[in-house]
Design a protein around this nucleic acid. Structure first.
Lengths: 358, 358
DNA sequence: CTGAAAGCGCTTACAG
DNA sequence: CTGAAAGCGCTTACAG
């Protein structure tokens, strides 16, 4: 007769995990209650065909009766596995990333994984702290949208070289991790082609930080389309601005310093485009009539601004699902070649790209 | 001399948890490397003052050298504690909830907790599945923004009566859990007072599902303000609509079926208000000039619509922090009285509430 | 088909 | 101040 009381039952314990103080029901409780071994209960839980159908029924009944809750942490520890995936987002309050996160969680959940969330607010320091904490929970893999200014050395230091990582949206130099990004270059090229097709020849690229990889790629697409059409990119019409509405509006004047002004602008993103439209309007230039504007992202405001904004839809939720699937694939194929994927974007033509073309 | 190789080292194992196949470094590795016991290493990890300063230094050096990563799951199992909190959101793609989630994660992270994310897409079935999965990870507590149509019986069944739960935004009948919501009633009353102060007397309440608790509360605030001003609520000006732009726009006509029409509307939320403004415009009625409109939420579009939308700011990120703090407080005070908190909202006056008042 | 035993990585009285 | 031992809740060869 073995004593079932835990050795320490006399002293006070740290507050237990589950629900308001009750001790959790364990496989031992179930096994004892119906006189089978813990192994048998475990086999039932894991759906093993080894256990007799009638024994299984008795176990299952008792499981329900005692409202047993599986302790996946304990199981994972024993089995040396994990069913969690860490998702680290630079800015969850950005609808683009929020949608992305929703897609990730949806796809992960449907495969029985649980999402460990971390958000960094674009701070490399916070990112470091968040990653360290999350790694202590032994996630099977990690989906990381790096904070602006992340150093790959710092990131690999905390993650280890060989972790199962999927990078989203921003590259990190010198690591061999899977990478998923938007097709920034093609998107910007599509917007540029669209404007050219409308008859514009003097086109600016407006907004964004030139150093950021997404801005570089979008500028490259812009330049490519211009070149294909035999048009010249005027260096003074490559205008930088912080990616927010106010700064963008304030930079509007930079478009009109020459005798010859552009008649259209491909903007770094929707926010910048919205800012530019504000800036144009306040100068008496009506966007969509006197000047054509395109954005990037298709944020929800794009459809309802006036004029509505021609832009590139990026389908962030679908990107989230895709990211989850790529990571899950990596988990089961640790030795497959590194993936570098670029997701298609779709041109949405609206009113803002109307306008005069001379 | 004890054999250090795991008993099962011969057979193939399920793919191990950490980074690309390498076995994780454990306290045993550290202890063996420098010839101390695992207990000592553990004491160092937990910052116990018991261990000699020099021993501590040696242990810490070795920890770094071997890039040891603490296994919090194992520690939590042994200590019968948890440092995770589950966050279940009905709709993460709604910016309001995304901001809320960001706030929760921020506050939780700063207290050393990790966020287990679940999103339900407003489906009670998915919510049930998500909750079951998350509970297997023994979260210390749960922040739940219930899906529309959640049954409290189903929820308590999976969570247990006594779990540490904080309900956000939507009530669940017959449970004794902490609850945090916006001050819907006062918010709607503020909007109504604002319109009355501008001289309006014929005011409608527009949009939302009358059964939803938030709509009921907002209608109550509207009615209260009207009554305080000695104005009558016309039942035919209590107009329902699904909370999306299109449906709202389609319901515009319902305001103008009588000889006497309202001159202003308090809308259920911003989305509905934006829809109504669309509907008004297409009837040749200019919102903010011919008809006054207010919203609720202060979504980012509110500031940039034309006219810009007078609305109630709800500060979802701050609500998230607050929710996290309430839950953490509950964890340390399991027997404190149930909290029912109502968060202040703030009137933001913009152009849409201008307009004629007769 | 079922049970006894060992072990996942950690922590914590308890001795020394 | 340090070590040996037991145990958290689970799983898995291994015998029977």
């Amino acid at each position: 007769m073995k004593e079932k009381t835990p050795a320490t039952s006399k002293g006070p314990r740290p507050s237990p995990t589950r629900s308001g103080g009750r001790r959790a029901v364990t496989v031992t409780d179930i096994a004892n209650a119906i006189g089978v071994s813990r192994a048998t209960v475990s086999l039932v839980l894991r759906n093993s065909p080894l256990v007799h159908v009638e024994t299984r029924a008795r176990v299952e009944a008792e499981l329900r009766r005692q409202r047993y809750v599986y302790n996946r942490g304990a199981a994972n520890l024993r089995r040396q596995t994990s069913n969690s995936v860490a998702l680290v987002i630079n800015d969850l309050s950005n609808p683009f990333f929020a949608e992305f996160a929703a897609g990730v969680d949806e796809a992960l959940g449907s495969k029985g994984f649980v999402t460990l969330l971390g958000s960094t607010g674009e701070s490399p320091e916070r990112q470091h702290a968040v990653l360290s904490t999350l790694m202590e929970h032994t996630p099977a893999g990690l989906i990381l949208s790096p904070a602006e200014g992340s150093e790959s050395a710092q990131v690999t230091q905390v993650l280890g070289e060989h972790a199962n990582v999927l990078l989203f949206n921003r590259e990190l130099g010198g690591v061999e991790w899977d990478f998923l990004a938007l097709d920034n270059q093609r998107g910007a090229a599509m917007a540029t082609h669209h404007l050219i097709g409308l008859g514009h020849t003097r086109i600016a690229f407006f907004g964004g930080h030139a150093e950021s990889s997404s801005c570089r790629q979008r500028r490259a697409g812009f330049a490519q389309a211009m070149e294909e059409a035999g048009l010249t990119v005027e260096p003074q019409w490559l205008i930088e601005s912080a990616p927010n509405r106010l700064e963008a509006a304030a930079c509007t004047g930079a478009l009109f310093t020459q005798a010859q002004s552009p008649t259209a602008a491909v903007c770094y993103n929707d926010t910048v485009a919205l800012g530019l439209m504000l800036g144009l309007t306040s100068r008496g230039i009506q966007p969509g009539r006197d000047f054509a504007v395109t954005g990037f992202d298709d944020i929800s405001e794009a459809a309802v601004s006036s004029p509505s904004l021609t832009t590139l839809a990026v389908n962030p939720r679908e990107r989230g699902r895709q990211a989850a699937e790529l990571l899950l694939h990596r988990l089961s194929h640790p030795d497959a070649a590194v993936e570098r994927l670029t997701a298609p974007v779709e041109l949405r033509i609206r009113q803002s790209s109307g306008g005069t073309r001379r």
